[in-house]
Design a protein around this nucleic acid. Structure first.
Lengths: 181, 181
DNA sequence: GTCTATATAGGGATAGAC
DNA sequence: GTCTATCCCTATATAGAC
């Protein structure tokens, strides 16, 4: 099986169960590969699998969230394009955020730097767009933070309420949060 | 050791590591009790420990978050009192939310109903206060959801950025989110 | 109520055949 | 590249002395 295909099957396990809950048995079941085969592809074991998953997702976000943000359309349209990417990425809130999940327990010790960098990049990118609309840097930063807070918070609420409408309403608010009235 | 004391020492382990990461060894270390002693107090094992922790926290919230909300002061003052409870409860964002953490992996299968009910109660309580200020029920509900989204999202951001100011700014916004202008 | 010691299952990981 | 078989360790849980 091509490595990319394997990684794509590992992803939902880490997102749903977290690092400690993502046992090699579950990862094996999800990929259809026996444990030894997984270790053939990832000699660094589970830790390397998680790293591969983090990198894969980082790239996915780059293409589906950042790229739309950096076109030369109007800020509002760029943000709308981003919300489409976000809705797809989180399956309308039905799939947890790897960043949020990996910032708990042992995983946080192992991957904190990468998580922090990913989030920082996302915040910086958002803040920059907002600045382009004429907002002061500090204000822009706060709006970017508020947007990320909304995304992450909505994901938690949907996990518990099972009501995806909450998520969709929340991300539909993103333009209003980010852009000056 | 009194049971309440034991539970209070179990709490940070579940909050920080999640259900799967909260091993009996860690729970033992945190309480200072050997494994067998823990099983003496909680014959249902780890699952019962988690249940006890959920109940304990539910009561704590009742006293420190709901009670302030139900005084007969002005809505704005009640909400400000709640934010104090919230800030204390989450240690300015440095301690994860049990609700968010337990809504992942196996724990979600075991405790989903309790989690859902806790969140629902919190949302209902908030929405009711907002209604008292003359907001339409549906609008009030949305504001309550937005408040919870803000709290939960800020917790995630702080975990990753280690910047508690983000959390404090977020909960300082709660009155603005909940109350009509 | 707390402990030491132990049982049993499942965790991560490796050897070596195919 | 994938498998079966196996290793060692840790996980949850229990028995029984004190």
């Amino acid at each position: 099986m091509p490595k990319e295909k394997i990684i794509s099957k590992l992803i939902p396990v880490f997102r749903h169960y977290g690092y400690e809950g993502a046992t090699v048995s579950r990862l094996s079941a999800a990929t259809g590969l026996k444990k030894a085969s997984l270790y053939h592809h990832f000699q660094g074991g589970k830790e390397q699998m998680a790293e591969a998953v983090l990198e894969y997702i980082s790239n996915w976000i780059e293409e589906n969230v950042f790229a739309p943000l950096q076109s030369n359309k109007l800020p509002r349209d760029r943000i709308l394009a981003m919300t489409k990417g976000i809705d797809k990425f989180y399956e309308s809130g039905q799939t947890p955020c790897l960043l949020a999940v990996m910032s708990l327990g042992e995983a946080d010790n192992l991957f904190h730097q990468q998580l922090e960098q990913s989030l920082k990049q996302w915040l910086d990118t958002l803040a920059q767009i907002v600045e382009e609309t004429g907002v002061e840097p500090q204000q822009a930063r706060q709006r970017a933070e508020d947007a990320m807070i909304t995304i992450q918070g909505a994901l938690v609420l949907v996990r518990v309420t099972k009501d995806t409408k909450v998520f969709q309403r929340a991300i539909a608010n993103l333009p209003q949060i980010l852009l000056p009235d």
